[in-house]
Amino acid sequence: MKKSANTLKLQFDSLSQNESLARSLAAAFVMQLNPTVAELADIKCAVSEAVTNCTVHAYRDAVGPVYMAMHAYENRKIKIEIRDAGCGIPDVETAMQPLYTTDAENERSGMGFTVMDSFMDGLTVRSRPGKGTKVTMIKKLSALPR
C-alpha cells in the first residue's frame, strides 16, 4: 500500500473507559477527510468493537497495552490497526462467526467481528495464542461532492 498521507499512533491501557476515548479519537482523525455521518458512525462502531475485544478478551482480568494506528491515504482510504499483546485467539475463523462468544455469562453478544466486517470495507484478523491479536480494518470513504 502507498505511503499514508497522515498517520496517528496511540498506545493506551486496556481499560474499559478507553473504549469511548478510542472511538472518539478515531472519529476526530477521520473528520479531517470530511466523511459522511454514516461513514463516521461505521468507523466509531468498528473501533469500539475492536478495542472492547482487547479489554474483555485479550487481557481478561489483567490490564495490558492496546496499540492503535490510523492511516489516511490520498485516495480517501482509511486503515485502522488495533493490536494487543494478550492471550490471542486459537481459532480465528470460529471466533469470527456471528453470535460466537466465549463470554456469554457477561452477556457478550458474539457480534463484534460481524459488526466490524459489516461496517468496514476490509477486515483482517491475525492472532497467535499467547502472543496477541492484530485487527486491521479498511474503510473507503466516498468521494467528496464537487
Binding site: A41, S48, E49, T52, E107, R108, S109, T114
Partner: peptide
C-alpha cells in the same frame, strides 16, 4: 451510539 454491547444488554 451503540455497539454490540448494547445487543447483549437488550437481549439479556
Amino acid at each position: 451510539f451503540m455497539d454490540s454491547s448494547g445487543l447483549g444488554l437488550i437481549l439479556g
